[in-house]
Write a protein that binds this DNA or RNA. Structure first.
Lengths: 105, 105
DNA sequence: CACGTATATACGCCAGATCGTATGTTCGCG
DNA sequence: CGCGAACATACGATCTGGCGTATATACGTG
């Protein structure tokens, strides 16, 4: 699951809402339709994108499909974020060192 | 800077490359043009989107504009990720408790 | 098997995003 | 002031993505 695919999937507002909705508990397609206020085929298409990105899992329950979030792709996003966090911290450290040099307290 | 705007900005592959390029050091537009292999106006447009999302900062240096990344919007993304991480951890804990109940070691 | 329910797929449409080209605008320099 | 360099903006063409409607598929129930 490349990072680009993950970002593309969650950048769509409705998909982000769906992903948040299945974060804590699994939901059927019909429940998600009610939640996001869109027509069923649209929700199914968004779910397909989320599934392709590995962001959700499906479980068959009779004629319903219960969706639930997966964390694996978000872990790569977390790694990417970590690199930026580090870069930012390093910049703060350099700034601090610079200030210490000019005004050693 | 709403989360949606941040995601929309970094979901575009070229913008993600640009943001990574200005993560550790500042870069002029011309440098970025060489890096991403696109025509200058395109890079400027992407930079405008990143700037609107607060993901980059500009510094004038003569006739050049030096861009550098900012972390603030990514912090909100980090918060969002944290919620999903928590939900996932909670699920693991419940699974563990369930296994312990069936097979107490 | 017939029928309703739940979900997925096919299709056409349209708004928005991206790109390249052309054109401003600002700055440094002679 | 005139000219080139660096960058931004305007514009038109093209393509993609999301939407709704219509239809197919799978399942449960009688």
């Amino acid at each position: 699951m490349p990072l680009a695919q993950t970002l593309d999937a969650i950048a769509e507002p409705t998909r982000l809402r769906i992903l948040d909705a299945v974060r804590d508990e699994e939901r059927s397609v019909t429940e998600l339709v009610d939640l996001v206020g869109m027509h069923q085929p649209g929700v199914s298409r968004h779910l397909k994108v989320l599934r392709s990105a590995g962001l959700v899992d499906v479980r068959r329950d009779g004629q319903r499909r219960c969706y639930r979030s997966r964390f694996a792709p978000l872990h790569e996003l977390d790694d990417w974020l970590e690199q930026h966090r580090r870069a930012w911290d390093a910049r703060l450290d350099r700034l601090e060192a610079h200030l210490d040099r000019k005004d050693p307290s």
